[in-house]
Design a protein around this nucleic acid. Structure first.
Lengths: 215, 215
DNA sequence: GTTACCAATATTGGCGCCAATTTAGGATAC
DNA sequence: GTATCCTAAATTGGCGCCAATATTGGTAAC
């Protein structure tokens, strides 16, 4: 074929189309407002029509894309109000288990967190935008895991995607990214020191970056 | 046709199959562990195969049913750990906005809540199990709405379904239901009195009924 | 009498076709 | 020259068929 194939399609094994579209939305390859024509996606990800439709249906359930009957699906336009509200929810959930995190922290878990924070910093320099996003996710998942509530970990991962429609590209400012990296280490410090209040303060500040920035 | 048709299928207008299956799971018509054969659902709800499949896919995304490849879908077995964790999350979220609820409460909103609480009590006596469930939902939605965070309202409605796999039928004990009804009114009282702390206490107690009972 | 194997049946799930609706472009009338 | 209507292309979305796989029941062998 002479037409351009997405490199994601040439992956080693067959991966779920939903994941692929999700990643491309998160990384900004499919900007907010883009109409997701089924035939385009079919070719882009080298998959069948039903697969495309299942992916679009799932993403619209997650409210990452909007569905207009007989018109099609398009990437959600970021909504300031929603972004703020989701940020608030995240602050509520993630600070709520700070005491538990301090209580459950062990030398092992702190070492793991240090590693993940370091990996995030490395990805800032050398990684792709997706790797960077996932490194960030991994750190926060591991941190939340100390809260002892598996459902909460999953829930936060879920709602985190909810306003990430345009977000990851907002990480552009290097200053902000580096600040995020430093904050990760400060959180681990607070955890190590057993200072739950400081940890809560850091988490809240980390989430509420000006203009719903990264995390 | 001589075979038995579900009365839900004979509804006034065509409703979404996903909703219908969801309701039947919530009301206990489809008990936990039941295998949801596509051909059965097709006949039960008088719909087509693709509709059934879309519904099953959506419900498995919501983790209300489990999908075993080449075996089919079955209603999730309630999990004690998950039930507890979801309960904890709900306590976190719903108590977190208690201050806002008190701050935003008006004479109008309190009157509306009284009406909904009263309606819940009526449904205890005269309504179907589904009407009762929805009356409860309506009350809590209206209450949460005072928190001023629309996303949070939707999120709670969502996770509320997450462990409701067997739950609504657990409302059997009349004593518990009546206790729930009374608690609704006590919450409104606390709201009216501007006592946020008491409201938080009531909400937490209301959610954490022994053995993850109603709400 | 019990167990293991095999065949028949039933169920899942992938895939493509076609009708319905929308959109865009062109031609005609004013 | 501009606006409106009509026709043609494109896109969505509903529906059914068929192959792949699991399950069940029967049969034969030990």
């Amino acid at each position: 074929m002479s037409e351009v194939q997405s490199e994601t399609a040439a992956g080693p094994e067959e991966r779920d189309v939903t994941e692929l579209v999700l990643q491309d939305i998160l990384t900004g390859m499919l900007p907010a407002g883009t109409w997701l024509k089924q035939i385009d996606l079919e070719r882009r990800y080298d998959c069948t029509r039903p697969e495309v439709r299942r992916a679009l249906d799932r993403l619209s359930q997650k409210r990452l894309v909007a569905h207009v009957p007989n018109r099609g699906y398009h990437v959600y336009q970021p909504d300031d109000r929603r972004a703020k509200e989701v940020g608030d929810i995240r602050v509520i959930l993630e600070t709520a288990v700070a005491d538990m995190m301090v209580a459950n922290a062990t030398a092992d878990s702190i070492a793991t967190l240090r590693g993940l924070a370091k990996y995030f910093d490395e990805m800032t320099l050398t990684g792709t935008i997706l790797e960077h996003y996932e490194a960030n996710l991994a750190f926060h998942r591991e941190l939340l895991l100390l809260g002892g509530n598996q459902e909460l970990v999953d829930l936060v991962s879920e709602i985190r995607q909810r306003t990430s429609s345009a977000p990851v590209s907002q990480w552009r400012t290097r200053a902000r990214i580096e600040k995020s990296g430093r904050e990760h280490h400060m959180m681990i410090d607070a955890l190590e020191a057993g200072d739950a209040e400081e940890l809560k303060r850091l988490i809240a500040q980390h989430i509420r970056q000006p203009a719903d920035a990264p995390k």
